[in-house]
Design a protein around this nucleic acid. Sequence first.
DNA 1: GAGAGAAATATTGTCTACAATAATGACAGA
DNA 2: TCTGTCATTATTGTAGACAATATTTCTCTC
Lengths: 231, 231
Amino acid sequence: MSTIMTESRTLVSERLAAELRDDILCGALVPGSRLGEMALAERFAVSRGPVRAALGLLSEAGIVQIVPNSGARVRIIGRSDARALYQVRTALEAEAATLAASNAGRHAAPRFRQLLDQHGAQIAAHPEGAYLQASSDRDFHVVIAELSGNPLILRYLTRELYPQLSLLRVKHRNVTGRGAVALKEHERIAAAIIDGDGEIAGLLMRRHIRNSWTALEMQLSQTEQEDETRT
Amino acid sequence: MSTIMTESRTLVSERLAAELRDDILCGALVPGSRLGEMALAERFAVSRGPVRAALGLLSEAGIVQIVPNSGARVRIIGRSDARALYQVRTALEAEAATLAASNAGRHAAPRFRQLLDQHGAQIAAHPEGAYLQASSDRDFHVVIAELSGNPLILRYLTRELYPQLSLLRVKHRNVTGRGAVALKEHERIAAAIIDGDGEIAGLLMRRHIRNSWTALEMQLSQTEQEDETRT
DNA sequence: GAGAGAAATATTGTCTACAATAATGACAGA
DNA sequence: TCTGTCATTATTGTAGACAATATTTCTCTC
């Protein structure tokens, strides 16, 4: 986490970081690729100072890896990284769901309804489902983190965990989500939160993230076997 | 989190960050105090470049607050910050305990025994107990995070959450721990982990952190009232 | 004396240049 | 052909200077 208080005017370094972040998360800069200070300074027509600061911010987000005296690269997220990320997600998102159930109340129902409808429409359009955490799936989770009222949880998820998981997505484009099953789980979580039942909300969220990880792990296993077979 | 791979040689910026970190966590640099780049560069006889990088690292740890174009200060941790930190701790440490129960097995018993004995000796020496998370209390929690096998949890706790809570300690030196009650809770958590009972370990850890927060919150309330009374 | 505005000063953000380090390429020997 | 050594090159880390911004001080008016 970082406690840089930013308001209106944005530093060059922060703008660079945002742009590089987008390039990294959309796959334009693939995991492993080199982020040389001099090349980036030239590309963005700035000095190396703000480039270094930007790389520091991206390193902090966990999507760039800096080796002192050697340079920075887009981070490669391996299976064990993904596992650790999912375990942390399980913890934080279960806590968020529990807290959200205390905070949200009935007036959150329309928001959840909208999110779930959106998600349902997405699944109808793509029954096999896109990869984990397409936007409506992600939105659902972010809303719960917001409703938790804990800015730290929200920050860790949105600034670090989700971007890092996006890197996994860049690397494994053919991994699919769990479609209607996941949606059903979302619905139950939302209902528990709306009903103020924190214990059940937390438990269902744990289960949901665990299920997502189990499915993903299986697919990663297959992908890695295919990679080995192809080598 | 930061993904700077550091091995043997340490950068000036990292050495500065470590030294400043120590100054901040021991209270030599109190919350709110100003960390000017020029003053620090002069104090450490280096240029402002590595000072800036060091401040970036400390900001990332959450113990320094940087306002663009205005400078850096040691962060002040307020009550709502502390609450958020404890909620995140609850989530992460319960998960760590659950995972540790799967990983640790019986051979962790001597280590726990040692930690608990140490903690017991500390409480015997100070029955009223020092402030939250004295070293043996902290060690117990760190060991569980290590046993969890999740490097991310360990990193968040030791790099960010505990240092930030140390800042709270700097501000509230008269807040006491829970003495023998906390030790008893530790013992039960350790037993559950050694027995491989992840569900109970996680539940007991949740309860433990929650209890610690409840006690701390009460004391913070009193301290703040006294502060107001004194003003 | 209080408040507003301008000027002066201090500090941070960025740029440029040099020092330090790692990576790459060339060459010799087994 | 492969391996090890050395030289060269590229890049990162740091220092110092200038530009940009915020803070402090001073002056004037009410």
